[in-house]
Design a protein around this nucleic acid. Structure first.
Lengths: 318, 318
DNA sequence: TAAACCTACGTTACCGGTAACTCAACTTCT
DNA sequence: AGAAGTTGAGTTACCGGTAACGTAGGTTTA
């Protein structure tokens, strides 16, 4: 029997008899044959079922939620996630993009919209479906899915202004001007400015945005500027750290100080009071990114810009 | 110029003149040539630089830490992580293994030691480096890295017995008998039995092991059996949920009830007191797994069983 | 009943690298 | 100077699938 006949049976392509099919399948069983998908890709100048997904880091819960949304969707369409942790560095991302492209992925999903010029060049000339997630981008390389971080920061700022606060603080962790957290800070600052308040102290710690930096960041901010009445944190983890600091120091919330987080992470559900925060459906971002990518992989069209939006949660901590 | 000459230059294989090298590199630059690594793998019956990494889910912080340890190490040796979320299901894992193997990965890292018979068969006949992580296994398919979960549960049980507790409780989330958390529970139960105490109530919630299940699980356990004096939780997240529940209900810790967690997750760092827990270096498990795998990929030998151990943290909550 | 058509296969060539071989030109040694 | 070795190339074949084409035998149609 020719290998072509076997190939036809295995691909369920038709053009073979039932008798032949049985014979082929018996042989497959006997030999424990597993197809070499590499050969198929190579032969047909096709692509693998891999989708490269780059995220800044895995320590940050929001990105793992996004990743989970992506992978679940991809798996259900027989695709696999190839992970890329960029450590918030564009050069790392560029290296990773070049490597992953050489393996002929079906598509790419990148976090953030800032890339090196060479990376952009590589992405464009690869001619494969691409989704930039997290921060919304009016002119994506191919597609993008996310929310407007500036607006979410602005809305929080405006809300806090409406609560009567005059002196504002901010605690975050990154110095990277191009990132989304910074857009939130910019929106927040703008809203405060528009509302006649004053952003009297902003802190960008050189740490990961977790509980403990929230804890000591609060301590640091309050000791260097005790006039601050309310603090907006980069995310809920940091805000929870702040709440714990205040509890430990018998600082009343929201009596003595207001606390606001961002991202609605699970931890907030067990606090003694509802945290003021911005609710974002991280899983949905991942799902939508994967869905749009898969549409393009199968040759359909997909919306170039998808806004998943956000919800301000008033809470009880301001 | 023949493509063979170009191939030699690009692989830095020697046997070419400087003049030729310059000519080749100029052409590479001009065409924006990217090598097709698929072709190389295909031609030489070689393997890709992909390493399949299966984890139960991404919602659980411990696994994301392990994954981070793995990926960081792999990246530094020019390998890439292909993610597999098995959703705690062996059949999902089997399907994923089959798919990933057809793409000729350099190696595999699997979480847990329980696999379907067919999966084991596939893994054995693939003849590639393989590390089973998390729970220690005296007879791994190839290699394993982790700790003895039974022992960690036993040690915690013995410690609590030594503190004078008589009536014990447990709150976890899974019903899967083969998993590591269950080994901890078994070790815990054995220590209580050996110490003459009584495991009067154990709860296995059908939920993810997060803060909120810890919160309502505690409520459920205490209302159904108020005699329980100390509760061991599946992980720190659940224990923190329990602490929050007790704070909300004005139940004193450790006066009215003892709380013990497992895994030393970051959240514990901002509690008002030090949580009694078991410290495990999750990142180290990932790193070591990747290290051993890479050793085997490059043809060296690596230890078949690596125990990363654990530390009981006495804390202030019992 | 002959032409037209379909069914179930087999044959050939190709994808893009690289191992293994060949070979001309040049260098070094006896 | 001739033999032997070295250097910098080119040539050929192959990896495992599949697209495209070929074809023998059976079936349908005019």
């Amino acid at each position: 029997m020719s290998k072509m006949t076997a190939s036809r049976v295995l691909r369920d392509e038709g053009g073979y008899s039932e008798k032949t099919r049985v014979k082929v399948m018996a042989e497959v069983e006997r030999l424990g044959y597993l197809p070499n998908r590499i050969a198929t890709v190579f032969a047909g100048d096709k692509r693998t079922t891999f989708v490269g997904v780059s995220i800044p880091d895995l320590g940050n819960e929001v990105f793992t939620h996004v990743l989970e949304g992506i992978d679940r969707k991809l798996v259900s369409y027989n695709h696999q996630t190839v992970l890329g942790m960029t450590q918030h560095a564009q050069t790392e991302e560029e290296t990773w993009i070049e490597t992953v492209l050489s393996w002929k992925p079906a598509g790419l999903i990148l976090t953030g919209r800032a890339h090196t010029p060479r990376a952009v060049q590589l992405l464009k000339s690869a001619h494969i479906p691409l989704v930039e997630i997290w921060d919304l981008n009016s002119s994506p390389i191919d597609m993008c899915v996310g929310l407007n971080h500036f607006d979410s920061g602005y809305d929080m700022g405006r809300f806090l202004v409406s609560k009567g606060y005059k002196r504002f603080g901010y605690v975050g962790t990154s110095h990277d001007a191009a990132n989304a957290a910074n857009s939130r800070l910019n929106g927040y600052a703008k809203a405060i400015d528009d509302g006649g308040g004053r952003l009297s102290k902003q802190l960008c710690l050189n740490d990961i945005p977790g509980f403990y930096p929230g804890y000591y960041g609060t301590e640091q901010l309050l000791s260097s500027d005790p006039s601050v009445e309310v603090i907006f944190f980069q995310n809920d983890n940091m805000a929870v750290g702040a709440v714990q600091f205040c509890e430990a120091q018998k600082i009343s919330i929201p009596g003595d100080i207001g606390i606001a987080g961002w991202g609605e992470l699970p931890i907030a559900s067990v606090l003694p009071y509802r945290l003021t925060t911005v609710q974002v459906n991280h899983l949905r971002i991942g799902q939508l990114a994967a869905e749009n990518l898969l549409l393009r992989i199968t040759g359909d069209t997909a919306s170039p810009v998808s806004d998943v939006g956000f919800n301000l949660v008033p809470g009880d901590t301001v």
